[in-house]
Amino acid sequence: MAANEEHYTLAAPEFDKPVKVLIAVAPYYKGIADQLVTGARAALEAAGATHETVEVPGALEVPQAIALAHRMSNFDGYVALGCVIRGETTHYDTVCNDSSRALTLLGLQGAPVGNGILTVENRAQAETRAEAAGQNKGGGAAEAALHLIALARQWGSPKGGVGFKPGGGEGNSDESFQIA
């Protein structure tokens, strides 16, 4: 069983500048969501990060809230939290697939996102994964976001390009070029 396996965990990143993270949570299953948030907040605070939490109606709205914040605010990264428990209809598949796909697309567009939206067969699985003193998937999602923020900061500084830049160096006219 996967729950009994040991997994390698990366060392927590360290930051020389403050980190601000948005936790976007769908509290549809309130007790599970509260555990996820508790774990995420503890992980962020252990890294010295500040955080804000916003609640949205469901898992499909979590990526939308993150997209809005990424466009309109000044967060360094995001933690997506919620829980989808399989029901009797295919709605489960739609919510799982679409929320996951949307979060992945946000990440590919440059938003450092830790995905802690649980997709489980039953409530017992959700409770086991969410428990902050147990599997702590909320804390894991926060740590993932922190690692992605660290990579963004490492690689985010402007670098010289390849080719030529108009209006190069000192004494050059606007029509001269410098090698980048």
Rank of each mutant, 00 (worst) to 15 (best):
C96E: 05
A40K: 07
E121C: 09
G110I: 09
A111D: 02
M1I: 13
Y78L: 05
D16H: 07
A12N: 02
L108T: 10
G161Q: 14
A111C: 01
L68Q: 15
A12Y: 05
N97K: 05
L118I: 11
V37T: 15
N136R: 04
P27I: 01
E5Y: 15
A133N: 15
K159A: 14
P13R: 07
A46R: 13
I85W: 07
S176C: 10
L81I: 02
N115D: 12
Q35L: 10
T38V: 15
L22Q: 05
L105M: 01
V62D: 01
E127I: 13
L60H: 13
E5D: 14
L81M: 02
Y28W: 14
N172A: 13
L44R: 11
L103C: 04
T94A: 04
A145N: 01
Q109W: 12
L44M: 08
Y29H: 14
Q35P: 08
A152L: 13
Y92I: 00
A111G: 03
A124K: 09
G171Y: 06
P57V: 12
D16P: 03
P13D: 08
G110L: 09
E61R: 05
G168W: 00
Q125M: 10
V113R: 00
R153H: 02
G114K: 06
V54H: 14
F15V: 03
A130M: 13
P13G: 07
S173F: 00
G110M: 08
P57E: 12
T104E: 08
G171L: 04
L81D: 04
L81Q: 03
Q154I: 01
T9N: 01
I66T: 04
Q64M: 15
A132Y: 15
G31S: 11
N115I: 01
A124N: 03
V120N: 13
R101D: 02
A80N: 03
V19E: 02
F164T: 01
G138V: 03
Q109A: 12
V113F: 06
A49Y: 15
D93K: 04
I117R: 06
A46L: 11
T94F: 15
T50C: 11
V54M: 11
C96H: 07
A65G: 01
A59F: 11
E175L: 11
G171N: 05
N74C: 04
N115M: 07
I179P: 00
V56I: 12
E170F: 11
E175I: 07
G171Q: 04
A3P: 09
R153A: 03
K20V: 06
S99W: 00
I179R: 12
N122I: 03
L103S: 02
F164K: 00
T128S: 10
V54S: 15
L36T: 07
A46C: 14
D76A: 05
R123N: 12
K159S: 14
G138Q: 08
G156A: 05
